[in-house]
Amino acid sequence: QVATSTVRILGMTCQSCVKSIEDRISNLKGIISMKVSLEQGSATVKYVPSVVCLQQVCHQIGDMGFEASIAE
């Protein structure tokens, strides 16, 4: 089973930030795809909930120095 959710990301300033986040999160087990939008300050994450949760994704992004939260 696959889920798609949006994560809000604060602190991104350039495409390099976007690429860094996409590269790191895409390597997590259970992540199918991730598309980060600098303009919208968010990311669309396609993932397998039984393998990885959005809290883990937000935590990983937080470790990179950005502020991440699950969009309502």
Rank of each mutant, 00 (worst) to 15 (best):
K29A: 11
G11T: 03
Q40S: 12
L28Q: 05
E72P: 10
S69I: 12
M12F: 04
I61M: 04
S16L: 11
A68E: 02
R24E: 10
L28F: 06
S5E: 08
E67G: 07
K46Y: 10
G62N: 15
G11W: 06
C53F: 07
S69M: 12
S42V: 10
V7C: 12
V45R: 02
D63F: 12
T44G: 04
G65I: 04
E67H: 12
M34C: 10
T44A: 09
F66L: 03
R24D: 03
S20I: 10
G41H: 13
G65C: 04
G30E: 01
S37N: 12
N27F: 09
D23C: 06
E39R: 09
V2T: 15
V2F: 11
M34L: 09
S5D: 10
V51P: 00
L54N: 01
H59S: 14
I21C: 04
L10Q: 09
M64G: 01
G62E: 14
Q15T: 08
D23S: 12
M12L: 06
V36R: 01
S26R: 11
S33K: 09
L10W: 15
V51Q: 10
Q15C: 05
T6D: 05
N27Y: 07
R8E: 06
G41S: 13
D63T: 14
A3W: 15
V52A: 04
E22M: 08
I25P: 00
S16G: 08
A68C: 15
V45K: 02
Q56F: 15
H59P: 02
S42N: 11
S5T: 08
I9L: 03
T4E: 11
C17Y: 05
Q40H: 14
I70N: 05
K19E: 11
V52Q: 03
G62W: 15
G11M: 05
S37F: 11
Q60A: 15
V18S: 11
A3K: 11
V48G: 02
V2N: 04
G41C: 10
L38F: 11
M64V: 03
G62T: 14
F66R: 03
I31Q: 00
Q40I: 08
L10K: 13
S20C: 06
K46A: 13
G11L: 06
T4D: 04
L28K: 01
L28H: 02
S69C: 09
S42F: 11
I25L: 07
E22I: 08
T44C: 12
S5Q: 08
L38M: 06
C14Y: 03
A71P: 13
S69W: 14
L54M: 10
A71M: 12
I61L: 10
S42Y: 11
D63M: 15
K19T: 11
S42I: 13
K29N: 11
C53M: 10
M34I: 15
T4K: 07
S50E: 15
C58S: 09
D23L: 13
Q1H: 12
S42C: 12
C58T: 11
I70A: 08
G62A: 14
P49F: 09
T4F: 13
S50D: 14
T4P: 02
A68H: 03
S69L: 08
E39G: 07
V52N: 00
A68Y: 05
S33N: 07
Q55E: 10
G30C: 08
A71K: 08
V51W: 06
I25F: 10
R24P: 01
I61F: 04
S69A: 08
G11D: 02
S42H: 08
R24G: 09
V48Y: 15
Q1T: 09
V45Y: 04
E39Q: 11
N27G: 12
T44K: 11
S33P: 00
T4V: 12
M12S: 00
V52H: 01
V18G: 06
S33C: 08
C53E: 09
E39L: 13
I31V: 13
V2C: 15
T13R: 15
G62Y: 13
V18N: 02
S42R: 11
Q15N: 10
V52P: 00
Q55F: 12
Q60C: 05
D63S: 12
I61S: 02
G30I: 09
Q1V: 09
A71T: 10
C17W: 05
G41I: 05
D63H: 15
V48I: 13
V52F: 04
G41D: 06
R8H: 09
C58W: 07
G65R: 02
A3I: 13
Y47D: 00
L38V: 03
T6Y: 15
V45M: 05
E22R: 04
T4M: 12
M34Q: 00
T13A: 05
V7A: 01
D23V: 11
E22L: 07
C17G: 03
D23I: 10
C17Q: 15
L54A: 04
K19M: 09
E72G: 11
N27A: 13
R8S: 08
E67S: 13
T6W: 14
P49C: 06
H59A: 13
S26N: 12
V18A: 15
C58D: 03
R8F: 14
A43F: 05
E72W: 10
A43Q: 03
V18E: 05
I61R: 03
I70C: 14
M64T: 02
G62V: 14
I25R: 02
Q55Y: 14
I25S: 01
E22P: 02
K19P: 01
K29I: 11
L10R: 14
G30Q: 03
I25Y: 03
V2M: 07
N27R: 14
G65P: 01
G65E: 03
Q15E: 10
I9H: 01
Q55L: 13
G62R: 15
V36T: 02
Q15R: 10
L10Y: 14
E67W: 13
A71Y: 12
A71N: 12
A71E: 12
S42D: 08
S26V: 08
S37L: 06
M34P: 00
C14A: 03
H59T: 14
N27E: 11
P49A: 08
I21R: 03
V45H: 03
S50I: 06
M34W: 05
G41W: 07
K19H: 09
V57W: 04
E39S: 10
L38N: 00
S37A: 06
G62S: 15
T13M: 11
I31G: 00
Q56I: 10
S26Y: 08
I31L: 03
F66T: 02
V2L: 07
S26Q: 09
E22C: 06
V51K: 07
S50G: 11
V2Y: 14
L38A: 02
R8A: 07
R24W: 06
Q15S: 10
S33I: 05
D23E: 12
F66S: 01
T6G: 05
S37H: 12
V2K: 03
G11K: 05
V36W: 04
V48Q: 12
C58E: 09
G41F: 08
L38H: 02
A43L: 07
E72M: 09
I61A: 02
S16M: 13
H59G: 11
L38S: 01
D63E: 14
C17I: 05
E22G: 03
L10S: 08
S20L: 14
I21Q: 00
S20A: 09
Y47T: 01
A3F: 15
L54R: 01
Q40C: 13
I9A: 00
S20M: 15
R8G: 06
I31S: 01
I32E: 01
G65A: 03
E72D: 12
C14Q: 02
E22H: 07
V51R: 05
V51T: 05
G11S: 03
L54H: 01
G62P: 03
V57S: 01
Q60D: 10
S69T: 12
L10G: 09
M64R: 01
V36H: 00
D63V: 14
R8T: 08
G30P: 03
E22A: 06
G30M: 07
K19R: 14
K19D: 11
